[in-house]
Design a protein around this nucleic acid. Structure first.
Lengths: 345, 345
DNA sequence: TGTTAGCACTCTTTATGGTTGAGTGCTAAC
DNA sequence: GTTAGCACTCAACCATAAAGAGTGCTAACA
């Protein structure tokens, strides 16, 4: 039933591992010596011929060795790869502890990740789609400007300037603040519906226009999270890998990194299709982004409960040290989970 | 007295313009035909020989045409370049008008600039070193967290979370707010000295530790501006120019763009040495950044009075369309000046 | 004296062809 | 089923040649 018998599997494994190491097509003789199978190169050749027919490996040209195909990589990732036994490598925890701003943390993490793997790292802030308003305040900043400050459950702070025709007196301001807080506190973006809005406006009376503005601001704040920010690091690492370093491909890739839009689609795709395991590997064409068909992309989703998720990802050549990458992502994912857990308490 | 006579100047001009166009070394015959000097190639050759001796042009190798040296470019920029007659090209003004967040505006501008020029653009927010506190507010967000919101004259909003042992009652909060506002309002970072601080703490009584935290936050906010954010766009454009596209150089450059640190030194350098004209051209080695010795860097400083300055810059190959770049920078500079002028009113 | 035509020379670029070496596929023997 | 051996393929390398662009220099010319 099984497509590959024991021996073919071992040979395929040997081929891929060797190729990951060297980046050169690997020949029968190499496997014959390198592996502990004690088979002659001729035998290996026969097996390789079979493996090629089955689509696991391919030849760049007639008289070259074999390299893994996408199918080969897939088999490797699914079946052959050793998972490192999760020794909880405390990845510079202190850094995370002592930095306050989430943005900084994320940038820092991307950096560490890129440095550890030598590939390109990307990371997004957790998306606060279902985040709730925790605190809300209007302040008169000067004669014509009102400042709306919004704090969410996740302690994210957003602010928005609102221009007014004239200054509000203190009392009105206080009333509005109380009104807004009592009405909106604890609500998520979806929960603020037309009914809530109508009620609010009614209660605000002549200042309903200000309420409008605040709601706009609020919408803006939530919106802003939705087209989320993606932080990248080590983008130039891709230049280190000859298979990506032709000026055409490199340029396309780097562009994708600069124009974050494409990455956002990648992230969304990941969020949508994520299994429980939390680690997803896209090999070549499997990637949702066309430009990355010569790359592999490994992503992880970290979670904060209540549907608040963020994504970490690594982008590198197909010939990627999957074990190392997966390992790195796993520990980072764990760390993020706990870090944000702490923050929310 | 003059090093170059009329004819040499015209020849030099022709060489440089041609080279800017084609990127290929330009030979005597080309100039003989291309220019309106009506001289034979032989004569041009003689002149070129002189120009080379004087250091304005050089030969990549014996039997190639000539290319401009740094000195040649410098002469071109200083004396030969035509300034376009500043027709105020309204560069997508609406965009600026309708976007609220400075950050967005700047990113947008960088994008436009990069697209217009096909080089790499960088831009920094105006540095608020001497910016003044306009409004300040503490709010109790939840039991253990205080939110400090700081608004500066330029309507920049900063916020900082402060952890407290226990919640403050409303009255105390109000008092503290009044105290902080009356004491700090209108002060710039430098003006908040030990005296001010001591007085503040004294008046705060038992809550002096909170005042400390607020001041820290304030310092942080100002500090944050000092290691300023640099926005880049079109970083991959450099790959379009063969002279920069060898993997070594490109990698270094792209790295410099990713690690913004170096750009910051560039910005600071620019701010320091800026003349009244406001446009600065660094050619090759003149650049303060080592990595960019194969590039030219053109920067402009925009100003908001009171020492609040920001920088715009273009980085491209030495063989850069200086006229276009300078023109673009000038109009953008003007726009920024007026935009921010408006905003401050 | 300045300009120009002409020519030998230099040096890059491109093409050509031969050689090498790695690797394969196939056949025949074990 | 495994292996040794051999013919074959093909990229990579190298040397050599030819082409072409451009120069410097000399000598002639106005």
């Amino acid at each position: 039933m099984q497509e590959l018998d024991e021996r073919k599997t071992r040979i395929l494994n040997a081929i891929i591992r060797n190729y990951l190491d060297t980046g050169e097509p690997v020949g029968s003789r190499t496997i014959s010596k390198y592996s502990d199978l004690n088979l002659s190169s001729a035998t290996i050749r026969n097996e390789m011929s079979d493996l090629e027919e089955l689509g696991y490996i391919l030849q760049p040209h007639t008289s070259a060795g074999r390299i893994p195909s996408d199918k080969g990589y897939r088999f490797y990732v699914d079946n052959l790869m050793k998972e490192k036994d999760q020794e909880v490598t405390e990845m510079k925890e202190f850094m995370i502890e002592h930095t306050e701003r989430m943005e900084q943390v994320l940038k820092q993490m991307a950096k560490v990740l890129a440095a550890n793997t030598n590939y390109t790292a990307m990371i997004t802030a957790p998306s606060y789609q279902r985040n709730k308003v925790k605190f809300l305040q209007l302040s008169q900043v000067d004669e014509e400007q009102l400042l709306a400050v919004i704090v969410t459950e996740g302690n994210l702070v957003k602010n928005k300037m609102i221009s007014t025709r004239e200054a509000l007196d203190n009392e009105t301001l206080l009333k509005l603040n109380i009104l807004l807080n009592t009405s909106l506190n604890g609500l998520s973006a979806e929960q603020i519906n037309l009914g809530t809005i109508a009620r609010l406006k009614e209660q605000a009376g002549i200042h309903s226009n200000i309420v409008s503005d605040v709601l706009d601001a609020l919408a803006g704040a939530f919106q802003e999270d939705e087209d989320l920010e993606v932080y990248t690091s080590g983008t130039t690492n891709i230049l280190k890998y000859p298979e990506l370093n032709d000026s055409q491909k490199a340029s396309e890739l780097l562009n994708a990194f600069e124009e974050k839009k494409q990455l956002v689609t990648l992230v969304n795709e990941t969020l949508a299709s994520q299994e429980q395991t939390g680690i997803q590997v896209y090999i070549g064409d499997e990637s949702p982004i066309q430009n990355m068909k010569d790359c592999s992309v490994v992503t992880a989703t970290y979670q904060l409960g209540e549907g608040m998720k963020g994504t970490i990802g690594i982008i590198g050549p197909k010939r990627m040290d999957y074990e190392n990458v997966v390992d790195n992502l796993k520990t980072l994912k764990n760390q993020l989970d706990t870090v944000f857990q702490k923050k929310r308490e």
